[in-house]
Design a protein around this nucleic acid. Structure first.
Length: 226
DNA sequence: GCATTAACCACAG
DNA sequence: CTGTGGTTAATGC
């Protein structure tokens, strides 16, 4: 049974631009699925016919490289997932895994495409989201390639605090040390060492996955100078 | 040469 | 899954 998109309170900015008829079509092609932490939402190297929209939850987007796993980004709903790989390729070029309980709508690609072709405002909002994501990725790319360890970790901590947890200085890291390493292009040992180093210098407080940022200024400086 | 940085390995909670 | 210590390789004075 499909949900009624018209009454959905978690519509994307793009979907807000659709009229009643378009929403009805969306509704018919949309299936809403709940994922538990650790569930695979999208699997690399499998065919993709759907666009996913994360209504709620945290998702990690990752690819398996020749050597090891690389986490591309952490996405927080509401956000689209898999537009590039569904439009630009026939198979998924990356995987997505829920790292918290997540609600996701899968939209048939044909319906999604029709909305783009028929509704300019919808299409524009989709481009806005893709563009923002693109720019964010450039930034991450530069940061992770040119900074050294502490800079990368500082950057990641600030990212979680500001973007994922809405400016909260205290948060629970949704990743293991290993995954944080996969995200920041370092080893898990290096992550461990840098976190205890920050902790010793009273920049952050660490208790298992619980992180408190004590000295944000300092963290920003470390992130900036690399 | 010497210092710094970080990966890899190993082992212990 | 984590934290630490030793070792090693690369890089930059």
């Amino acid at each position: 049974m499909t949900d009624i998109c018209y009454y959905c309170l978690q519509k994307s900015i793009a979907t807000e631009k659709l009229d009643k008829k378009e929403l009805k079509e969306l509704e018919l092609s949309c299936s809403r699925i709940s994922f538990k932490k650790g569930d695979k939402i999208m699997i690399q190297n499998t065919p993709s016919h759907h666009i996913a929209f994360i209504k709620e939850g945290l998702v990690k987007v990752h690819v398996m490289g020749p050597e090891k796993e690389q986490i591309l980004k952490i996405v927080k709903g509401p956000a689209y997932l898999g537009i590039p790989t569904t439009i630009g390729a026939k198979i998924n070029e990356y995987s997505a895994t829920a790292i918290s309980k997540s609600d996701v709508c899968f939209i048939g690609f044909d319906v999604f495409k029709n909305s783009i072709l028929n509704n300019g405002e919808f299409a524009y909002e989709i481009i806005v989201e893709l563009s923002k994501s693109d720019l964010q990725f450039y930034k991450k790319c530069i940061n992770q390639v040119q900074k050294q360890g502490p800079g990368k970790i500082a950057e990641a901590l600030l990212y979680f605090s500001e973007k994922i947890f809405d400016q909260q200085p205290d948060f629970k890291l949704p990743l293991t040390r290993n995954e944080l390493g996969d995200l920041t292009c370092t080893s898990r040992e290096t992550v461990s060492r840098i976190l205890s180093d920050f902790s010793n210098n009273k920049i952050i407080k660490v208790n298992k996955r619980e992180i408190s940022i004590l000295n944000k200024k300092q963290l920003e400086i470390i992130s900036k100078i690399g």
